[in-house]
Design a protein around this nucleic acid. Sequence first.
DNA 1: AAGAGATATGCAATCGATTGCAAAGATAAA
DNA 2: TTTATCTTTGCAATCGATTGCATATCTCTT
Lengths: 338, 338
Amino acid sequence: MSETTIHDIAKKLNFSASTISRALNDNPLISDGTRNLIKKTAKEMGYRPNTMAANFRTKKTNTIGVIVPLINRHFFSSVISGIEEVAYTQGFAVTISQSNDNFEKEDKIAHTLFANRVDGLILSIGMETTTFDHIKLFSDRKIPVVFFDRIVDEIKAHKIVVNDFEGGYKATKHLIDQGAKNIVHIGGPLNLKIYQDRQEGFCRAINESSLELDESSIINTNLTRAEGTKTIEKLIKGGKKLDAIFCGNDTTALSVIIYLQKNGIKVPDDILIVGFSNEPFSEVVTPSISTIKQPGFSMGQTAARLLINQINNKQKITDFKTITMPTELIIRNSSKRT
Amino acid sequence: MSETTIHDIAKKLNFSASTISRALNDNPLISDGTRNLIKKTAKEMGYRPNTMAANFRTKKTNTIGVIVPLINRHFFSSVISGIEEVAYTQGFAVTISQSNDNFEKEDKIAHTLFANRVDGLILSIGMETTTFDHIKLFSDRKIPVVFFDRIVDEIKAHKIVVNDFEGGYKATKHLIDQGAKNIVHIGGPLNLKIYQDRQEGFCRAINESSLELDESSIINTNLTRAEGTKTIEKLIKGGKKLDAIFCGNDTTALSVIIYLQKNGIKVPDDILIVGFSNEPFSEVVTPSISTIKQPGFSMGQTAARLLINQINNKQKITDFKTITMPTELIIRNSSKRT
DNA sequence: AAGAGATATGCAATCGATTGCAAAGATAAA
DNA sequence: TTTATCTTTGCAATCGATTGCATATCTCTT
């Protein structure tokens, strides 16, 4: 009734449990003959290793923890998909949690993953997160951590980002090239580096041009659909003079476009729009939204590879890299001056 | 340097390890005084329980496994999101894998999750899956399994589905009500029950109407973007007479719409379209796509609740329910006869 | 005051696999 | 043949927490 253990096999074959264990793990100490015999018998007896016992003994779980703000978000689910793919081929399980951009939850999740002894952690921090003790929990004890997208300067670890600065720069430059004179940036919260960078890219592009950088042309929001609508409404009703908007994400671009269309303002004829992230809807909406493509899937793959390398090579890593994936400007109809 | 264990606490406080263990687990045998003392000391000593040891001893991992065809798909990531939310509040971790609709991978994943002793399994099977030994692995050993969306008749388990039949019926009925006379159904592979059901709903609606059910008006594809384009192209070039299409998913609806628009056929003026699933893009595309809404997030929640109930109540379950979540027809522009 | 019951704690086995060290057996070299 | 070396296997401790059973202490009741 109960599961067969290595001891059962040992008894049956008149070997010791150690031999069984070694044979099953392809330890070269064991001769080929016995190894084969043991493996065959194990199969016959329906033996399945007790991972929990092994984990307990070896202090490895072969599990990597992932924390994202929201699973149900195209960019993040793409990253997760990439992580899973790599982890799977390397024999790691992936445990996923979402912080909902809520610091308390993020904190609790981190502690839980820590208590569950994940071998490593891949994460993108939440919008509210400003302290990092819950991450230091890992890094202090040499448990590998890899950040992606929403990274943290305060902690030494490998980091995977897209070049948000470049993205912001390209997007803005493109608008300038299209002849825009009054460009507004609706950006994200500045405690997140990615939004800082996008904004800096915006500023740089403006400064390099003949245009004036105007403080009132930068608005920071939380980049939700609702906020986007509110923001553009305020701008329009406030009589702000503008002929182009670089939005911090596609969601905002979308709500802006919808608002403008409803109010008889034409995109791109009257106002040019560029978003960020290349959400699936951006391609198929009318007008299709120009945007900056972020390679979510391959970011996930890279993050997983880096993490698993660290897990396997125990040597302390001293130089942590920040891998910057290139961004790609996708020009669609929302920004084409006709 | 090494972690504090209950034995360390025991030694320091002159208690036995059992007492420490019980106190920490709020076992009522322990007096309030000692419990408090122990908890306080544990905290002071920086004690953190070794989950792996506990798991090993109790044979519970507090982990639930999830297998979906593709993480990076809005419906599935919504379900995962719902699962995670419930699991989190109940103290379960969620391990996620994707089969990529590949049977071999699904099979391997199932075995891995099984070896990792997940406490329960939630899954939606892949398109290629026609045998179920890898799932019986669980159900045979009384490990709770909950299916969602792409369910399996052969296995007794709780199942969460949307009423695909009703969805297909509503969608088709709607097209008929809009005056369509020649309705085509581009459906999914029939080894998946959901596509069978949608198709049956389609047939029922046609049969109940004054229209003729025409074999050649039902086409089964794998519902990808590319297949959708191919299929509509063949139909149009083949001179098929049609004024409405019920597509098995929104992706197909989208590719059909794009093809038609490119070829000067107007949606909805010439051909009415209804999709299925309410993908995020469906609302924002032009014309916006009428569709059947599937409550992914709450399906995930329900699945997780059912599973966790089974995990916690050891009593054998004899009557497995199939919970059918209602569908909702969302009428948008792609099917509005003007 | 004495036995019954309630309360609080300890003992020790156990879960199953891993691994350092010892040892037995086999082979080769001298 | 003997010694040295290599190969192969076993012993036994260990990982940290849990839990059935035994025991000790205390509180009541009569």
